[in-house]
Write a protein that binds this DNA or RNA. Structure first.
Lengths: 227, 227
DNA sequence: TGCGTGGTTATTGTATACAAAACGCGCTCG
DNA sequence: CGAGCGCGTTTTGTATACAATAACCACGCA
């Protein structure tokens, strides 16, 4: 995209990621313009993108806030992501070229290396993880699917990345990726879908655990409901 | 949203819907500003929304065109919509209030009336159809799901509404809705999902038939001017 | 004291002017 | 005759000024 609005987008994201502003806090376009060093026009463009990703939200009267995702929000997001990304895995299994599979292997080697460092290099892990999923989405060859997933995937990362990941979680993630590659290499769409499903569902639980360790000591999850 | 950009959005949509511009044709922001009667700023906002919906697309060098959906594009869209809207139907079946079910019945009565006119009132049909699906999405109580579906649903309508609908197609659609209401009244998520699935898949075929009488048509479309 | 009300400030929305980038055309040069 | 290049024009991108609207605060009145 355009230079300034891209920069604004990246800078605002980085700013949120840095933890400098808390969830629920108000932001103003002027503020963001100052932070990003561009005028309000491209800032508004960037803000729109972040609104689409539900990283930022507007009040009923158009005031701008950092989104505050509840556990339910996160579950919803992971449910949708699972639905779409399982579909993507299935399609990818039928379409991935040998080169793309090799690329996935390479990316996952890098991811594994990042995980096995001590301490694990979380930033590198996240980068590799994103790259991995991007290859799959690319191979799924469904532009709209890719567009929808992009929206879903980025938001929670931005909003919650301050949190810590345990090394065992990261290792399991790497193993999931290995098995996905195996499913792809076998050209088995059902296998790929299944692995992707459990991968994401586990990721949700890992994520949710960190979000709401529920200070109230009683039952961890009341309020069943949803499906 | 804001007054002017909303108006721009609606006006541009109406303009496309009117068939005044053909798929693949170039548009300029200035042009649209003139048409909508507002300045380029809100036009750009509206254009961005339409880009999100893939009604408008930009070339690699940011020039603006009316999207030209291929049959594959349409199939992709319906596949995704089916995936998401089946999920919505399932959730809605568990959540719809008696009032909402009554509303669906009312909407579908209206839809049926529109269909049974001769000639059928297609605009009224489309309105009722949209209202029907909106109630379901609302009841699914999943904001992100709603957001994603909105994007998917609107585009093909805008791009292809010039086409004619056969009365039998419309009637079948009305029957599907009736069965959906029955599934909802029975609070049967599986039934609701199944009906929604067949409803949308049939809709795809109806739609695709009009777009390209055959998928591997010999010489139907030359040079996809896409961008 | 509680609540409405008016004005003041903060914030978003829109218009316009200008800057940058891309397209197209004609011209030159091989 | 054709290919590449320069320049004017078109189109998009950005900054800034201004308008509209919402939040805030203080004040007065019951």
């Amino acid at each position: 995209m355009s230079r300034a609005s891209d920069q604004a987008y990246a800078t605002i994201r980085a700013h949120l990621l840095s933890g400098a502003v808390k969830a629920g806090e108000q932001l103003t376009e002027d503020q963001l313009a100052q932070i990003t060093g561009v005028s309000r026009t491209p800032v508004r463009e960037a803000v729109r993108r972040l609104e689409d990703e539900l990283v930022l939200v507007r009040s009923d009267t158009k005031r701008l806030f950092v989104a505050d995702w509840s556990r339910d929000d996160i579950e919803e997001m992971f449910t949708l992501r699972q639905m779409l990304e399982c579909h993507a895995a299935e399609r990818a299994a039928k379409r991935l070229t040998r080169e793309q599979i090799a690329a996935l292997e390479q990316v996952n080697r890098d991811l594994t290396a990042a995980v096995e460092q001590s301490p694990p290099d979380v930033v590198r892990f996240l980068d590799a993880n994103r790259a991995f999923h991007e290859v799959i989405i690319e191979a799924a060859d469904s532009p709209r699917l890719g567009q929808l997933l992009t929206r879903l995937v980025e938001a929670p990362v931005v909003l919650r990345t301050a949190r810590t990941y345990s090394q065992s979680d990261l290792r399991q993630s790497a193993r999931d990726h290995d098995e996905l590659v195996a499913a792809f290499a076998a050209r088995d769409p059902d296998w790929a879908r299944a692995v992707m499903g459990s991968h994401l569902r586990r990721a949700f639980h890992t994520f949710a655990k960190a979000v709401g360790p529920r200070s109230d000591g009683a039952a961890s999850d009341k309020d069943g409901g949803d499906a």
